[in-house]
């Protein structure tokens, strides 16, 4: 059984198709990254999973169909929606207590306290939600998604507007939950986060899947992408045949553009022929961002 099964899901708003026949599975224990530019369809997909959008196709959460077996599906799911939302009549603690109540849980004070501490809202626990800053509201939404300890946690840009330090701690918390067996599906525009956290990645664009793979596979493809290499020579001499490749020279450091990493060896050979002494070489591997952009332009 998969943690999440998406089968032939399409979603249209009027005549506009936001998702075109999307299918993929998220295995239990995955830390899954859902990538795509603004308007790619990520939130549309998440809203369909969460039962706040109508859609065509089938979606199952922990084996439960989100339409026909909706209550069980919802118990297994915790979503942090992208849009900031809060109940202005409640405090942080009341919000989480009420949220728990919506899942039929009334005796989870310890867990609420722990979650509040982990999202750094302890000193705000009795503050009205109206008085929270944007980043704090976002963190409260993360806490809300976790009150019922859902096996599948979906985070739609949970760190948007959250400061660097707390973002890091937030990911530590999410990673801990992942290690405890929770399956995570994440969207974010901070690709370093995905690179660090996710073991599988899916990229969508204009409602279509453009890439679906493990992170290791994606990274291994990166050798076929354009990259740069920085070569530091001992005295500033360089091979004349390679001048055309130099895109930057700073003192004795030459930066060269390569179409892929296979071109490195011939270059080193040319330098050897020209008797150039090399002090240091630094290869800049393509980042997930480069890979992502490469996919978008295919």
């Amino acid at each position: 059984m998969y943690a999440l099964e998406i089968n032939n899901v399409s979603k249209s708003y009027g005549t506009f198709n936001a998702l075109n026949d999307i299918s993929f599975n998220v295995e239990k224990g995955d830390f899954f990254g859902l990538l795509g530019v603004n308007g790619a369809g990520k939130t549309s997909l998440i809203s369909s999973i969460a039962g706040i959008n109508s859609f065509n196709g089938t979606i199952k959460v922990m084996g439960h169909d989100v339409i026909n077996d909706v209550v069980k599906a919802k118990y297994n799911l915790g979503v942090v929606p992208q849009e900031l939302a809060f109940d202005p009549f409640l405090t942080v603690y009341q919000t989480l207590k009420f949220q728990s109540g919506l899942y039929g849980i009334t005796n989870n004070k310890d867990w609420i306290d722990e979650v509040v501490e982990r999202v750094y809202l302890k000193d705000k626990i009795n503050s009205n939600t109206r008085s929270l800053s944007g980043g704090m509201k976002r963190r409260l939404m993360v806490a809300q998604a976790l009150v019922h300890k859902p096996p599948l946690i979906i985070l739609d840009e949970p760190t948007a507007g959250v400061d660097v330090e707390i973002r890091k701690s937030l990911w530590e918390f999410i990673t801990e939950l992942h290690n405890k067996g929770h399956t995570i599906l994440l969207t974010t525009h901070y690709l370093e986060e995905v690179e660090k956290l996710c073991n599988k990645i899916i990229m969508i664009d204009k409602g279509n899947i453009i890439a679906k793979s493990t992170k290791a596979e994606l990274i291994s493809q990166s050798s076929t992408l354009p990259t740069t290499v920085q070569i530091e020579t001992s005295n500033g001499e360089f091979s004349p045949e390679l001048e055309g490749r130099v895109i930057l020279r700073e003192g004795n450091v030459f930066t060269l553009k390569l179409d892929n990493s296979d071109q490195l060896l011939p270059i080193l050979n040319l330098l050897k022929l020209a008797d150039v002494k090399i002090n240091d070489i630094k290869i800049n591997h393509p980042s997930l961002e480069d890979i992502f952009i490469n996919y978008l332009h295919r």
Binding site: G51, V70, A85, D87, Q99, L102
Partner: peptide, 18 residues
């Protein structure tokens, strides 16, 4: 209308309540 306006109706819609 307040729940729609502040968006918090989403938490009710996502919860296991018919």
């Amino acid at each position: 209308i307040q729940s729609k306006y502040t968006g918090n109706i989403i938490f009710v819609l996502m919860a296991p309540i018919s």
